[in-house]
Amino acid sequence: MTANPRGTRLPPFDAVLCDLDGVIRFYDTSEVTRLERAAGLPEGTTASLGYAPENDLPLLLGRITREQWADSIVQGLLPRVSPDEAETLALAFTTADFRADETVVGLLRRVRDHCPLVLVTNATRWLDEDLRRLGLTGLAHSVVNSSHVGVAKPDPRIYEIAVARAGVPPDRCLFVDDRRENVDAAVALGMTGVLHRDAAGLGAALAAALGHWAA
């Protein structure tokens, strides 16, 4: 914790920039796994295609639709499975249900009461709908969505946009993400980085600031 020129102790950061998927939101892929087993495919085959950069990045940059993304998965699954199986797998994967980690959400709501909270996410153009389904429309002060701004993590430009939205210098930002390369990119810009593993770890990272604000 640092001090300002008048000697008053400051919290360890003045804004939190936080990832969505893998930190707040988690997908239920059990139906995809069941379908893969029934089709004789190794578990994770569909995800490896869906998240392959040549299929995933155009979606996250807002250049293709959900239907085009699903079609790219279908094409990757053929001829290992029948056309019907490929389409069923692609549909199940691209429309999989999801949930929020309510412990993480609770921590972030406490943060939001005291400093800017910005979601920085490689996400789709239908993210606003997803946030409504999760009941998280008002969780953050701002959402920096790659498919809207046209750049994706770990490109430095998306971090610069998020810092501008937060309205504080990079060295006063705490950045949280579940991917090492994304955290490293934030640290390279002067932020404090937290590699997310679970809610307990996030709570520990936020504890000093939350304690300061409570005092």
Rank of each mutant, 00 (worst) to 15 (best):
G203F: 08
D155K: 07
D177V: 11
Y159T: 00
G106M: 11
L49M: 10
V81S: 02
L57K: 13
G203S: 12
V144P: 06
T88F: 06
G167V: 06
V163D: 02
R99E: 02
L35V: 01
S48Y: 12
D128W: 01
L60T: 02
T46S: 00
S146E: 00
G201D: 13
D28H: 13
R179A: 14
L89G: 00
H148W: 14
L195N: 15
L119I: 02
R179E: 14
P156N: 09
E102H: 14
A52Y: 08
A140Q: 07
A38H: 06
I158N: 05
E102G: 13
L78A: 12
A52W: 06
P170V: 07
T121A: 07
L91E: 04
M1Q: 13
G201N: 11
E85A: 13
L134Q: 02
G50L: 01
G167D: 08
V81L: 09
P156Y: 11
V151Q: 00
D101A: 11
C115K: 03
A96L: 05
P11V: 10
Y159S: 00
A208L: 08
G150F: 04
A209L: 08
E181W: 14
A186W: 11
D113W: 02
A140P: 06
G40D: 05
P53C: 14
S48W: 14
V104M: 01
P11A: 13
A39K: 02
Y51A: 09
D113L: 03
E43Y: 08
Y159P: 00
A186E: 09
D21P: 04
A204F: 13
A188Y: 15
P116H: 06
G167A: 02
V74S: 04
V151E: 01
V105Y: 05
H212I: 05
